[in-house]
């Protein structure tokens, strides 16, 4: 970010909270919907993410210390008490958790070197070669979806000839930098470039993230919220969820919600609550 750009666009760069219709005239605002009713917890999305984004497999020891690098993890929630007594075979509930691409991201404001900032299409970016590894962002992230490279993983994770499997469109991160889900920005950039050459906007369904692509039950929907007709925008509207609101005024029987909305992070991911037969 150059100084002249900083001065020229000062007011827009200072906007830290989204406002209504912020992306109305913009071309892109990437967003996601995850239907927990369709999620079976199969971990295909996590695997796809590992393959797409050059995530290292850290091994048992590092994993037990909480140093796993899964940008997208499946969280498990077990029923408790009376519920489990009544429905013992319910088992776990699953929730895929990745960077929520907050509109007012807690991680962005605390970075001492500006390695993480907001892109014009509403993503929370992470620039690896600017990151100095202070880990403030991770400490300030309420979702705990930022992952730190404690070790030099590449040589261990991809011994020769496994480096051949690496995605050339994604940097292989080295020791000492923070990383997180990017909504597969390499795919988005490619699609945007193609669309610009053809003089149009990226069409709905033209580009999707690796996790959404791999999901066998299509629980994950990805798309452009700035495009009213996109599937994502339609679900957001049907669920009466507004991007710039920290408390949704919606009908009670709707399943959509955003996680930790009350913290005013304004996340870009909507979850659709699971319907269990005890509730039906």
């Amino acid at each position: 970010m150059s100084l002249s750009n900083l001065i020229k666009n000062w007011s827009s760069l200072r906007v830290k909270r989204p406002y209504e219709d912020q992306y109305k005239d913009k071309d892109y605002k990437w967003a996601m919907v995850i239907d927990l009713d369709a999620c079976t917890g199969c971990n295909a999305c996590t695997t796809a993410c590992y393959a797409e984004n050059n995530l290292p497999v850290v091994g048992r020891e590092a994993f037990s210390k909480g140093q796993a690098m899964h940008w997208l993890r499946i969280e498990r929630y077990w029923g408790e008490g009376e519920h489990m007594d009544k429905f013992p075979d319910h088992g776990a509930q699953f929730l895929p958790m990745m960077c929520q691409q907050c509109e007012s991201a807690p991680c962005e404001v605390v970075c001492p070197v500006g390695a993480t900032h907001h892109t014009p299409d509403g993503l929370n970016s992470q620039v690896y070669n600017r990151c100095i590894g202070s880990r403030y962002c991770s400490a300030n992230c309420p979702y705990k979806v930022r992952y730190f490279n404690w070790w030099q993983y590449p040589e261990r994770a991809w011994p020769n000839p496994l480096e051949q499997q690496l995605n050339p469109d994604v940097t292989v991160r080295s020791k000492g930098v923070m990383e997180k889900c990017t909504f597969c920005v390499q795919r988005l950039t490619e699609a945007k470039n193609r669309a610009r050459t053809e003089g149009r906007r990226v069409a709905d369904g033209e580009v999707t993230t690796a996790c959404a692509q791999a999901c066998p039950t299509s629980a994950i929907t990805f798309g452009n919220l700035a495009d009213d007709k996109s599937q994502v925008a339609r679900i957001w509207e049907r669920q009466q969820i507004k991007l710039a609101s920290d408390k949704q005024e919606k009908d009670e029987n709707l399943r959509g919600y955003r996680i930790f909305e009350e913290l005013r992070t304004y996340p870009s991911v909507v979850y659709l609550e699971r319907v269990r037969d005890s509730e039906a």
Binding site: H117, T119, V127, N129, V170
Partner: peptide, 9 residues
């Protein structure tokens, strides 16, 4: 474009 992610990956 002036966005980091346009060029940095």
């Amino acid at each position: 474009p002036n966005d980091c992610w346009q060029c940095h990956k």
